[in-house]
Computed example of a mutant assay.
Amino acid sequence: MDDDVISLVHALGVFQGLILGVILLFINRKNKSTFFLGLFLIGFAIEFLPVILKDFKILENHPGLLLLPISFSWILFPLFFLYVQKISIFAHERVTYRILYPGVISILFLFILFLLPESTKEYLRGTYLFEIFFVLGLSYSLYIVVRIDKYVRTHTEEVKNQFATVKNRQLQWTRFFIVFCFVLVGIHIGTLFIKVAPVLELLISCASLILVFSIAISGIIQYNVFSAVQHANLPVKATIKQDVSKEKVLDLINKIDDYVIDTGIYIKQDLTVVDISTALELHPKDVSNAINKHYNKNFNTYINEFRIKKAQELLRTDILNNLSIEGISREVGFHSKASFYAAFKKATGTTPMNYHIETSKS
């Protein structure tokens, strides 16, 4: 394997990350908070500069660049965490900027080391100082990755308690990318100390290229997830507490069920818990909490069950002579055929078409 090819891929990855990161910095706006994602991509790209300096033998010709303070392993994932917080349904709450402190301190530490005489830097390279530094950085990053995963799970639960349609609101892509990024950063740092096969190094570099591009595109596509409750004009405060009586919950559930069934509001595609709470003059939290407590379901599942029952009624007729499956999905309130199929199979164990065929025979 030609080392020049690997070096070229490394350089291309850094260039791509810097360009896409800068683009994300400039498209940052109120409904699309990409600033911290842009910083993350820039830092992620710069993280691989030591590999390029090594590939092109720049350090051999310019020993003064030894220990260049461009390792951001301590601050990369906190930046991504801030991005996730900024676009989440909890964006109106306090953002935890303090998670950046260890990263800032680590950069200052590296900068001080960089200013040391070359002989001192050479001596330090022969110790375990940097191995310990990078292991601690990866450990802190792993801690942040776990926090991001937990945060996105909580975000998803809240989205399902507020919206009947959750497409493009769950941020599941962030969980996949952040784990993949963590693994790649760990591997790249390892290649600075351990020699790996050229083929494996090339595959890792190509994976990094694809990952950076995918993250940038996802960030460009992803809009902020605004809380329906936070932006609603609420006339009352939430009243349901953990120790509320079953009679109170049952009374609320009867009101909610009657309203949803009588009005057929569940077929509204952009339905939120606020639509129902406003009509019943209740707080949205009371509506979602009552559904959670009585049915042990979130608002999204609760509404989808009404939609599926309506779809089953339609599929037991000859409606498919005039309407497609996608048409039925929109008729009962789903945004897409894919989400309808997933919800229908989860509820019935079969597909809409199979259900139609089976019920037509009986």
Results as ranks from 00 to 15, higher is better:
residue 109 F to G: 08
residue 336 S to D: 11
residue 19 I to N: 06
residue 316 R to K: 15
residue 205 S to N: 14
residue 52 I to V: 14
residue 108 L to Q: 09
residue 50 P to Y: 04
residue 138 L to M: 11
residue 163 F to G: 00
residue 237 K to I: 08
residue 311 A to V: 05
residue 136 L to K: 08
residue 235 P to R: 10
residue 311 A to F: 03
residue 189 I to W: 02
residue 269 Q to K: 13
residue 142 L to E: 07
residue 228 A to S: 08
residue 49 L to R: 07
residue 153 R to H: 11
residue 134 F to D: 07
residue 9 V to K: 02
residue 360 S to T: 15
residue 2 D to G: 13
residue 320 L to A: 03
residue 149 D to L: 12
residue 157 E to V: 11
residue 171 L to W: 01
residue 169 R to I: 07
residue 28 N to H: 15
residue 62 H to G: 05
residue 200 L to Y: 15
residue 12 L to V: 15
residue 288 S to E: 06
residue 236 V to K: 15
residue 214 S to Q: 13
residue 226 F to V: 12
residue 350 T to R: 09
residue 262 D to I: 13
residue 319 I to E: 00
residue 294 H to A: 15
residue 202 L to Q: 02
residue 123 Y to N: 09
residue 161 N to S: 07
residue 145 V to F: 03
residue 140 Y to Q: 04
residue 165 T to L: 07
residue 17 G to P: 00
residue 343 A to D: 04
residue 168 N to L: 06
residue 99 I to S: 04
residue 147 R to I: 08
residue 51 V to F: 10
residue 201 E to T: 12
residue 310 K to F: 09
residue 157 E to H: 14
residue 265 I to V: 12
residue 255 K to H: 14
residue 88 S to L: 02
residue 63 P to Y: 13
residue 97 Y to P: 07
residue 185 V to K: 02
residue 171 L to G: 00
residue 255 K to F: 09
residue 138 L to S: 06
residue 352 P to T: 04
residue 85 Q to R: 08
residue 221 I to P: 04
residue 249 V to A: 01
residue 43 G to D: 00
residue 329 S to M: 07
residue 122 E to I: 08
residue 159 V to W: 00
residue 349 G to S: 10
residue 321 N to M: 11
residue 197 A to W: 14
residue 68 L to N: 03
residue 350 T to K: 10
residue 249 V to G: 00
residue 142 L to F: 15
residue 321 N to F: 12
residue 314 L to T: 14
residue 89 I to G: 01
residue 154 T to F: 11
residue 107 I to Q: 05
residue 252 L to F: 05
residue 276 I to C: 01
residue 296 N to M: 10
residue 330 R to S: 11
residue 59 L to T: 13
residue 216 A to F: 02
residue 321 N to Q: 15
residue 124 L to H: 06
residue 345 K to Q: 15
residue 324 S to F: 11
residue 296 N to L: 09
residue 121 K to H: 11
residue 244 V to L: 10
residue 232 A to L: 03
residue 29 R to F: 10
residue 261 I to P: 08
residue 102 P to Q: 06
residue 348 T to N: 12
residue 252 L to S: 00
residue 24 L to Y: 01
residue 284 P to M: 03
residue 16 Q to E: 14
residue 115 L to G: 11
residue 83 Y to K: 05
residue 127 T to E: 08
residue 23 I to E: 02
residue 320 L to Q: 03
residue 241 K to S: 15
residue 59 L to E: 13
residue 337 K to A: 09
residue 35 F to D: 05
residue 261 I to D: 15
residue 187 I to A: 12
residue 60 E to V: 11
residue 82 L to H: 03
residue 318 D to V: 09
residue 25 L to P: 04
residue 345 K to L: 09
residue 190 G to Q: 09
residue 317 T to E: 12
residue 162 Q to V: 05
residue 78 P to Y: 04
residue 98 R to G: 07
residue 236 V to D: 11
residue 190 G to W: 10
residue 242 Q to D: 15
residue 280 L to N: 02
residue 322 N to V: 08
residue 228 A to C: 06
residue 69 P to F: 03
residue 261 I to G: 08
residue 360 S to M: 12
residue 171 L to I: 05
residue 121 K to N: 09
residue 232 A to Q: 02
residue 358 E to V: 11
residue 225 V to I: 06
residue 265 I to E: 01
residue 121 K to M: 06
residue 154 T to A: 12
residue 231 H to N: 14
